[in-house]
């Protein structure tokens, strides 16, 4: 049921990617996405696929997990594939009874788009599988830091993100508990028309909101009583470091994307 939702699907393993600075991984993902959307030609695609496979293997995350991550998107991949296949103008290679033209260009485009979508999902999954939510927000905070000069509250944004991520499982658990308690009193969430169903949610939503506000209040008091006053002057238990590994990753990524762009435009 609700607990099947996986958000922040971090897997605590030990791989070079897990040890990497989150900033490298975030910027690396952005670079890779640029690559995925500019790549052209078979050499370019081969390079991108090979690199993604290399990263996947390097992450030591079981391949099964990546396949599972793709599952909810099969429909979109197949659907866009079909649209491309039949709606791209070009040399017709097959016509069916309903005068739908399958074109050679369409077939090529369909395969390309499918590869791009799959690479996109897998490379984002690499980031979430290898980076804990906490170090992800730490990384974002550090990356946004230069913008504090123009008034962007980088620390506050990152803190809000961490708190939100932290409370998702708690709220899911709470929802299940309250819904069970109301079901024990004969509440029925599954039947009746739309209006009736919406009304049936009241006994669940009211306690849920109350508890969310209570938790927020308690958390605020707990933070204040430990002298939390925002980011200024705060040090970290686990400071993030840009190391040699990160430097090399950067060099490899920048040259890869350079080659991809060169292949496309030169």
């Amino acid at each position: 049921m609700l607990k099947d939702i996986t958000l922040g699907q971090y897997l605590p393993l030990n791989s070079p990617l897990h040890r990497m600075d989150p900033r490298t991984k975030i910027l690396g993902l952005i670079l890779l996405l640029v690559g995925i959307f500019t790549v052209e030609g078979s050499i370019g695609y081969a390079l991108m696929i090979a690199f993604t496979l290399f990263v996947v293997l390097l992450s030591r995350v079981p391949l099964k997990m990546y396949v599972r991550g793709l599952k909810p998107l099969w429909f979109i991949i197949v659907f866009t594939g079909l649209l491309n296949l039949f709606l791209t103008p070009g040399t017709t290679i097959y016509v069916n009874g309903y005068s739908l033209h399958m074109t050679y260009e369409g077939a090529v485009l369909a395969v390309k788009m499918a590869i791009r979508l799959i690479l996109l999902i897998i490379s984002s999954a690499v980031l979430t599988y290898t980076t804990s939510p906490i170090s992800l927000t730490d990384g974002i905070e550090k990356l946004l830091y230069p913008f504090t000069k123009i008034g962007l509250p980088a620390h506050e944004l990152a803190m809000m993100m961490s708190i939100a991520i932290r409370f998702i499982p708690t709220l899911i658990e709470e929802t299940e508990k309250i819904s069970k308690a109301q079901q024990a009193r004969g509440a029925d969430f599954g039947s009746g028309g739309i209006i009736q169903r919406a009304k049936a949610l009241v006994p669940m939503l009211v306690p849920l909101f109350i508890s969310a506000f209570r938790r927020a209040d308690e958390l605020a008091v707990a933070m204040e009583s430990r002298c939390y006053r925002g980011g200024t002057g705060r040090t970290r238990l686990h400071p993030i470091h840009f190391r040699l590994l990160d430097l090399w990753t950067g060099v490899v990524l920048v040259s890869l994307i350079g080659v991809i762009i060169a292949l496309r435009f030169v």
């Binding site: 309250i178 069970k180 308690a181 024990a184 006994p203 009211v206 306690p207």
Partner: peptide, 12 residues
């Protein structure tokens, strides 16, 4: 009848 732990959290 089942009374959960901290049942007051379900008042609405």
């Amino acid at each position: 009848g089942l009374v959960f732990q901290y049942p007051e959290h379900q008042l609405f």
